[in-house]
Amino acid sequence: MIPQAFDYTAPKSLDEALGLLAKGAKPLAGGMSLIPMMKLRLAAPDHLVDLRRLKDLNYIREQGAAVHIGATATHYDVENSAVVRGKCPLLAETAAHIGDVQVRNMGTIGGSIAHNDPSADYPAALQALEAKVVLKGAKSERTVSVADFFVDTFTTALEPGEIIREVIVPVEDSGTGTSYQKVAQPASGFAIVGIAVRVRKSGGKIGMARIGVTGLANRSYRAAAAEKALEGKAGSATEIQNAASLVAERVDVNSDLHASADYRRHLAVVYAARALMAALARSA
């Protein structure tokens, strides 16, 4: 449980960091995913660039109709930020489910989503929130939707030399109800299934429903069929059940020591219903 040797730089500026990354160095943020991998010698970067000290990556601010969260904002920051709690509460609620207190104190939103563990919590919420991720390289900057960002297990849209600069989350319209419901793997605390839901009613009918799913498949996703099934519905128990039953449709579901594919699929349906109920109860 000893990492292999590497060089370390704590750059003074984002440009310096990007310059090093362009030469093949790897970014280090909170280290909650990378350092365990390095200790197990499953990862052995030659050069680490510490992003955690860069002030211009560590912020949470409301800007226009969106909340901008710098890559090195910790889960604790997100969980407790008045801006996040007020403007996109689903993300704060989800952050509170990540790991444990110590992990939330160190772990960052950028590090977590860049790692893209298929059982991580954030992706469910970010999918439901239709968030965007700003990727920055030495000479470029681009913005991608999370739907495009989360590619596959431990794989994202990040190109070599690129880092996540920030995550952009739209400010929630008032009246939207949200909820994150999770079945935690008892040993690791990771999500066997995590369902993030946003619903908004207008005129007694569900006008908008977004369902983000993590833990179930090789990548997080939005359960589009289930969302569609809810639109225009009043949100009765039967309607919720019918929609929830679509949450894992046409999904290649993971199977492991902690849950078979069948059970995961079942849990996804149960928890989608629970998350929908909770979100509807919170909606105006």
Partner: peptide, 11 residues
């Protein structure tokens, strides 16, 4: 041993 770490063995 599949439950080779505290990540997988649930105390």
């Amino acid at each position: 041993l599949v439950t080779g770490e505290l990540m997988d063995y649930a105390v």
